[in-house]
Design a protein around this nucleic acid. Sequence first.
DNA 1: GGTATGATTGACT
DNA 2: GTCAATCATACCA
Length: 197
Amino acid sequence: MSDLSLYRSGHLPPGFFARPADEVAPDLIGVTLLVDGVGGRIVEVEAYDQDEPASHGFRGPTERTKSLFGPPGRAYVHRSHGIHWCLNLVCGREGRAAAVLVRALEPTQGLEQMRARRGRDDPYLLCAGPGRVAQALGLTGANDGYRLDAPPFELLLGTAETDVATTPRIGITKAAELPWRFLDAHSRFVSRPRRRS
DNA sequence: GGTATGATTGACT
DNA sequence: GTCAATCATACCA
């Protein structure tokens, strides 16, 4: 990956995900994520890597994490707390567990469909949080392993520069100090405001 | 086999 | 702020 600006307002360039997750993650802020034409602009993500204990891949591949260890550019959709689904975008190379968790979108397309799926009207509660994102986009474990460069998925580069802030990750107890949460510094659609310093 | 723990959310005090 | 929901996985016996 060299110059993203060459691809502005188009699809993601080939090889975009074939990099370490903490390099891919900030580049995803401002990218539009759609599933069957419904979705919005990514404003918050977190990176996870096999070598740190917060990663689902830390203890090696399992039935649940096989797509996480698969080729980059695919979805890894896992259940959280037995209730919610969370969408990850697989990075790195096959055989290595690296992924970016999509934590929040600014809803831009298919608002009514997302409201119906979420059972809520407030646009700030449609996609603010990983479980909410998956629910709004209609994603479940059935979508685990799907390619991200083919329908129903679509990823489009943003057209404007985005100010990316970096903070520790949320909701984990291991490797909690790693600064691998990336967010649009000015967006109101993030799951939680930037941590006070 | 039993128990503890989540990459969370929504309801409630 | 606290806490239950709900289940696959991890870890210990």
